[in-house]
Design a protein around this nucleic acid. Structure first.
Lengths: 145, 145
DNA sequence: ATGAGTGCAAAGGCTTTGCATTAGG
DNA sequence: CCTAATGCAAAGCCTTTGCACTCAT
């Protein structure tokens, strides 16, 4: 989805829930869209013009609530955020176990189908309602190898 | 692997690195082995007899360093720990997005092979060294549905 | 005017660290 | 003996909250 389309979609989604698409929220979406991979709160602040930390957190809560951004858990402590998959397409993560950096990757559709089919069965068996799956590759990035 | 074998293996592994298999470490391994799914620090403390919080954290650092336990990231904030896969067997997680509880599951070997093959290719292409993969199912457990 | 959004500072919650004490090799 | 392990309390770090102010409808 192109950047303009993303903004249109996000604006619509927020308005449907009686939320404003404020300049900061627009800026956050902008930064995340341009980055193309999960960013930490500090990453977001650096790439925008000095947004207050609390405002970033609060806006991310709102954006997350309406499925516009997703919190990604990587090597532990600090949270990273990216646009939801319905805005960017389904993908997975290559996570560096050393520095925590994340790169987005896609896997063949056939594999996705296989995974979904198997997981649906398993979830049902265990009494879980299936929301989505998370397939990450843990390794060391080029710099940390 | 049976509990006794696990202790033997852990002891050996620690000794190889000139670390002691202290009573607390043994107790932590015991608790994790019996639980059969990832536990939080507080879970571990409750199931053992009042270990000091700092000691649990420190011992987990050691156990993690020598690949005896693994930190599992679930719905965000709090860390959960479980025994490493070479002690318990390769498996995946059913994670409740609401309460964070985790259940271990295994998927067919054929699917594992397919996943590994595809991911190896992708990791190589991106300059990552492949360590392992993480396939989780995110959903709602029976209680939270 | 009226509620939402923003900034700054303070508070929270999980995790880590300092330091004195105890125990194992 | 000497280093590792343990407990308690204090410090850290990321995240959340309180409160006053500004902005948009």
């Amino acid at each position: 989805m192109a950047l303009i389309e993303i903004h249109t979609e996000v604006e619509e989604r927020l308005h449907q829930h009686h939320q404003r698409y404020s300049p900061q929220r627009r800026e956050i979406v902008n930064v995340l869209a341009k980055a193309g991979h999960p960013l930490t709160i500090q990453d977001i602040r650096k790439r925008s013009n000095g947004l207050a930390q609390s405002s970033v957190y609060r806006n991310l809560v709102v954006l997350e609530e309406f499925d516009i951004v997703v919190k990604v858990v990587t090597n532990g402590e600090i949270g990273r955020y990216e646009l939801a998959e319905d805005l960017t397409g389904h993908h997975h993560h290559l996570i560096c176990s050393n520095c925590g950096v994340v790169r987005d990757v896609v896997v063949p559709h056939a594999l996705e189908s296989d995974i979904d089919r198997v997981l649906a069965t398993i979830a049902r068996r265990e009494g879980f309602s299936l929301d989505h799956h998370r397939l990450d590759v843990i390794g060391k990035c080029a710099k940390c190898r």
